[in-house]
Design a binder for these strands. Structure first.
Length: 270
DNA sequence: CCGGACTCCTGGGTGC
DNA sequence: TGCACCCAGGAGTCCG
C-alpha cells in the first residue's frame, strides 16, 4: 500500500510519540515478517529516540547506538495506541514508550519489516544503493535522463526502481507519467532530456501534493491516528480504467507492465 | 549489467 | 452461502 507520501504521513504522525522519549519495550508478537524480526531489535530497549528519518519507503528510528528500521510493505501501518489496548489480528509488534503510549505495527500480508541497523544507517545494505530522494535537489530530469542511457525497459519500471529514485510506487508512477504525457511502456532510454525534466517535475509535484493530503487511501491505508488520506480524490488515472480522461475524454486504459497494473491515457501519453 | 518472472502473505471483491 | 478466482499500494532474489 504505502508509497513515499504514506510513509511520510506515518512518520509525521508517530514522530511526537517517539522523539525524545525512551523505548521501554520492543514487544514482538509475531516475528515472521518479510524477514524474521532479528533479536538485535532489542538493542532499542531502554534507548532514547533521537529522531526519525525516512529514506525512500524505509522509516528509521534513530537511537544513540543505532536504530530500528521499519518498512510497511504492501499492507503495513503504524498506529498510536495506549499500552493495554488489546491487540487485533495482524498487530505484529509494539514499541512501548515510557510515556505509556504505544506505536503498533499492523500488517495483514506481512510484507513489512522490522530490522536493526548499526550506525551509520547509510551503509546498511538495504539502503546503501538507493537512488536520490525525489523531493530533494539531488533529483532532477538530468539525473533521470543520464541514468536512462542505454536502457530498453519501460519507463514506468525505471522510475519505480529504487536504485534510480526512491519512493515512487505504482500509484504515483502512473500519475506522474500522465502528468508528463509519457506512455508508461515507452523505453526509458528513448525519452528526451526535456521530457525527463517534465517527468521529474511531475514526480515532485504529485508526491508533494499527496503528502499535503495525507496520502492516498484506496482500500486500507490509515495514518497513525487511524485517519485515511485524501489524495484518492485527486488521482487522474490510477484505478480509473474505462473512465474518461480529464484532459481529452478518451477512456483510460489499464495495462500490466512489469507485473503491475498501469493506468494511462492512450491519447495524451506517447 | 539488464530485464523479466517469481516470491513472500492475507483479504476483499466478483461471478457463477 | 459457498467457492473459485483475481486483484492489491513493495521489492528482494534468481535466472537467462
Amino acid at each position: 500500500m504505502p508509497e513515499l507520501p504514506e510513509v511520510e504521513t506515518t512518520l509525521r504522525g508517530i514522530q511526537p510519540v517517539l522523539q525524545g522519549h525512551v523505548i521501554e519495550e520492543v514487544r514482538v508478537r509475531n516475528a515472521s515478517l518479510r524477514w524474521p524480526v532479528p533479536r538485535t531489535v532489542q538493542k532499542a530497549t531502554g534507548q532514547h529516540v533521537l529522531g526519525l528519518t525516512r529514506r525512500g519507503k524505509y522509516l528509521l528510528i534513530e537511537c544513540s547506538n543505532g536504530g530500528l528500521m521499519c518498512h510497511l510493505g504492501m499492507s503495513g501501518s503504524l498506529r498510536i495506541c495506549a499500552d493495554g489496548d488489546p491487540p487485533r489480528r495482524h498487530d505484529h509488534f509494539d514499541l512501548v514508550m515510557d510515556t505509556g503510549q504505544v506505536v503498533r505495527f499492523h500488517d495483514p500480508r506481512r510484507f513489512g519489516a522490522l530490522l536493526w541497523w548499526d550506525p551509520p544507517w547509510q551503509s546498511h545494505e538495504l539502503l546503501r544503493e538507493l537512488g536520490p530522494e525525489p523531493l530533494s535537489g539531488a533529483f532532477d530530469g538530468h539525473h533521470l535522463w543520464r541514468r536512462a542511457r542505454g536502457l530498453r525497459g519501460a519507463v514506468k519500471n525505471f522510475i519505480m526502481n529504487g536504485k534510480i529514485v526512491v519512493g515512487v510506487g505504482n500509484i504515483y508512477a502512473s500519475e506522474a507519467l500522465f502528468m508528463a504525457g509519457i506512455h508508461p511502456a515507452r523505453s526509458a532510454g528513448r525519452i528526451s532530456a526535456d521530457r525527463y525534466q517534465g517527468l521529474a517535475i511531475a514526480i515532485k509535484d504529485v508526491l508533494d501534493r499527496a503528502i499535503r493530503r495525507g496520502g492516498t487511501t484506496l482500500r486500507d491505508f490509515h495514518d497513525s491516528s487511524g485517519e485515511p488520506g485524501y489524495f484518492a480524490q485527486e488521482l487522474l488515472v490510477y484505478d480509473r480504467e474505462g473512465n474518461a480522461c480529464f484532459q481529452c475524454q478518451a477512456p483510460i486504459h489499464r495495462k500490466v507492465i512489469g507485473q503491475r497494473s498501469s493506468y494511462y491515457c492512450p491519447r495524451c501519453q506517447r
